[in-house]
Design a protein around this nucleic acid. Structure first.
Length: 110
DNA sequence: AATCTGACTTAGG
DNA sequence: CCCTAAGCCAGAT
């Protein structure tokens, strides 16, 4: 049996820990994985997260709070809809008060 | 096996 | 924050 602790699985683990109404960045997740330089890999893992309901990729945005991955969701504004449904304001593909909704996986154990 | 690509980030201007 | 350049690494072709 293979170990399911693949790179992707690790990213999913972090993503699942993102509380509702909160968002985080790819770099933050990457750092939490111990691979701060692999922020792109986090996004890459998200690409593989399709089919995994437990992976709220819509809560993961880039460092400035822009929904860089909304284009990968169904429709054209599903990602925004999901965020607003959780109380996160999104304007022009960018999260309003991003820092206020920001959630750091590395300090999630607080 | 080599090359390209990418849901990113940081640094410098 | 905007722009350009470069680093990054794993997957896809």
């Amino acid at each position: 049996m293979k170990d399911e602790a693949n790179f992707f699985e690790r990213v999913y683990e972090i993503a699942r820990q993102i509380p509702e109404g909160k968002v985080t960045s790819y770099g933050a997740i990457a750092k939490a994985l111990g691979a701060a330089r692999s922020a792109r890999m986090v996004g890459w893992a998200m690409n593989a997260s399709h089919g995994r309901e437990d992976v709220p990729a819509h809560r993961v945005v880039n460092r400035i709070g822009v929904l860089s991955g909304k284009h990968h969701f169904e429709g054209t504004n599903l990602m925004q809809q999901l965020l607003e449904n959780e109380g996160v304001k999104v304007v022009d593909n960018q999260i309003v008060d991003f820092e206020k909704h920001f959630w750091r996986p590395e300090v999630s154990e607080q």
